[in-house]
Computed example of a mutant assay.
Amino acid sequence: MSIRFSLRVNNDLDLPTLTGLAVAGEAAHIDQLWVSNDLMLRSAPALLGALFQKTTRLHLGIGIMNPYSVHPAELAMIAATLQEMSEGRFLLGLGAGSGEFLSWIGIEQDKPLTDTRAALRAIRALLAGERPIDADGAGEGWTRDAYLRLTATHVPIYIGAMSPRMLAFAGAEADGVLALLFPPEHFTTASEIVAEGAAGAGRTMSDLDMPACVWLALDEDRAAADRALALKLAYYGAAFSPYLLARAGLTTADFTPALDALRDGDEDAAVRAITPQMLSLGISGDPDAVIRRCRELVGRGATHLSFGPPLGPDPVAAIEMLGRLVLPEVRRSA
């Protein structure tokens, strides 16, 4: 069985750092690199425009953009432009986004699934050289003048999904699904829901790409790896899906002490507030520990493993270690 690998990084990184990660990813034979577009950080479209000039083989994606803070027409413009610039290496991640982050700028997620579905259909129509007004379910407000004045192109669209309904929709309509797995073992349930959605639309899982999206911290020093993962969990934990946290026996409120400590600038206190139960939401440790968890995911049917932040205390060293020690062993056992 052939296994694919990808990396996911946050858009808090500056371009030199991100370039180093992308170059290391190509050297480690990584297939894809996804850059988040979280609010109030760096612009992922701008970063990818530069990264395409620094890489030759790596597929680069934005994971994810939402139709609330950026209109679907502009999402289609971004996708078409980056696909043209990259000569076919661009991937678009689309989803409803974080309700908590959107609240920072006064935006409410009125109908997350409905709005994401409408955006997908509108973007698809625009990229194909068509008009959303003619596309079923593309939403309201489009006129005959709403079409891209560019050559038609295809851009794979991955849906960022956590809830069962969003997962089923992704299976039915998307080219891929970015399902954050907290904990990683949630892959079994998530993939079953995606498969059911695909079957309902007359598709199979071979019609889409479903990476097993986990958070990773890899280092020869396990304590250092655990600390790196704990700091990411402290910042983002309160924004995680309540549905996923409940499956792990946790709530968003459980992360409040860690987040408060970060706000106070006390990283040590934030790390102490992350319990072993919280830490198990991701994968952390030395190469042997990471290989074991990856093999478990492959055993659950994963054919694409996607490693998200922090990657490790030293992300470039972690990527090098992935390519040299982890990925070959996972491939051999697949």
Rank of each mutant, 00 (worst) to 15 (best):
F307G: 07
H29W: 00
L231D: 07
P164I: 01
A174M: 02
P309Q: 10
P184V: 14
G249Y: 08
F307A: 08
A80W: 05
L39M: 09
E84Q: 12
V326W: 08
A118S: 14
P164Y: 05
G282C: 08
G20C: 05
D221C: 08
Q109D: 07
F255T: 11
E329K: 11
M65Q: 06
L75C: 01
T303E: 10
I157E: 08
I193V: 10
A261T: 09
V326P: 03
S69N: 07
T56C: 10
R124H: 06
R4S: 14
I3P: 06
I62D: 05
H304R: 04
A179I: 06
A122L: 12
P45Q: 06
A223V: 15
L7F: 06
M1K: 11
E87Q: 12
E329M: 09
S103Y: 12
R293G: 00
T153Q: 11
S206Q: 13
R117D: 15
N10L: 14
A96S: 14
A96L: 03
L297W: 03
I157K: 08
L94C: 04
E108L: 10
L150H: 14
N10R: 10
M65G: 00
G95M: 02
F307N: 05
I105Y: 11
V177C: 10
V271E: 08
S241D: 12
P309E: 13
A230D: 06
L180H: 05
M166S: 07
L127T: 11
G301P: 01
L91P: 07
A289P: 04
T252H: 03
P16R: 12
E192V: 03
P211N: 11
A239L: 12
T19G: 05
L127Q: 08
L208D: 02
V70R: 13
L167P: 02
D266L: 08
R272T: 13
F101S: 09
F52P: 04
R8A: 14
L244Q: 13
D314N: 12
E192G: 05
V330R: 10
P328I: 11
D288A: 15
L167I: 02
A46N: 04
R149D: 15
I64P: 05
M65C: 06
D209E: 14
R324I: 03
D226P: 00
G249I: 07
T153Y: 14
H154Q: 13
P112L: 00
I30S: 04
R8N: 13
A239W: 13
V214G: 01
D219S: 15
L21N: 04
D136Q: 15
G160D: 09
I105G: 02
